[in-house]
Simulated assay, not measured.
Amino acid sequence: MKLVANITNYVFDGKFKCLSRFSLVGISNTIIDFIIFTIFQGLIGVNYTISQVLGYSFGVVNSFIFNKKWTFQGGKSNKKIYNELFQFIIVNIISLAITVIFMKLLVKDFRLNVYLAKILVTFIAQITNFIAYKLWIFN
């Protein structure tokens, strides 16, 4: 039990603190995103592009709250919260545009299942977001 506590402490408070916390927040964002996406696209029948925007938006709200308060809490940012929020929104609009473009490409041109395409574009968004959050928003 002590070994698990030591590993957990090392991962979430040690060298990998920022990345591991970002990953955990990302998992929660993804779960929220997929639930909303599935409700709108799968159950209600809304177009997958609109469902992507809705799901992604719900995940973004969760992301801002937890990344600001927990993941990047140690940042030395002197920015006002509205400046961080503005930057966060800009990054996520760009990230959303990237995911919608790639999703359409994967679904229409490569005839990939919409849920598999969703998984792939989620990974693209996570890489883009982590770099932007770490270097620009919460630094």
Rank of each mutant, 00 (worst) to 15 (best):
Met1Trp: 13
Ala5Asp: 13
Ala5Met: 11
Ala5His: 03
Asn9Ile: 00
Leu19Gln: 09
Leu19His: 03
Val25Met: 04
Val25Glu: 07
Ser28Tyr: 07
Asn29Tyr: 03
Ile31Val: 15
Ile39Met: 07
Phe40Ile: 08
Gly45Trp: 02
Val46Pro: 03
Asn47Thr: 01
Asn47Lys: 07
Tyr48Gln: 08
Gly55Met: 11
Ser57Gln: 02
Val61Tyr: 08
Val61Ser: 05
Phe64Lys: 14
Thr71Ile: 02
Phe72Ile: 00
Gly74Arg: 06
Gly74Ser: 15
Gly75Thr: 13
Lys76Met: 11
Lys76Trp: 07
Ser77Phe: 08
Asn78Gly: 03
Asn78Met: 04
Lys79Cys: 07
Lys80Trp: 08
Ile81Gly: 08
Leu85Val: 10
Leu85Asp: 04
Gln87Cys: 02
Ile89Leu: 10
Asn92Val: 04
Ile93Pro: 01
Ile94Cys: 11
Leu96Trp: 06
Val100Phe: 03
Leu106Ala: 11
Lys108Cys: 00
Asp109Ala: 04
Val114Asp: 00
Tyr115Thr: 00
Ala117Glu: 03
Ala117Leu: 06
Ile119Cys: 10
Ile119Trp: 09
Val121Phe: 02
Phe123Asp: 12
Ile124Trp: 01
Ala125Cys: 01
Ala125Pro: 00
Ala125Ser: 15
Phe130Leu: 10
Ile131Val: 15
Ala132Thr: 07
Ala132Ser: 15
Ile137Trp: 15
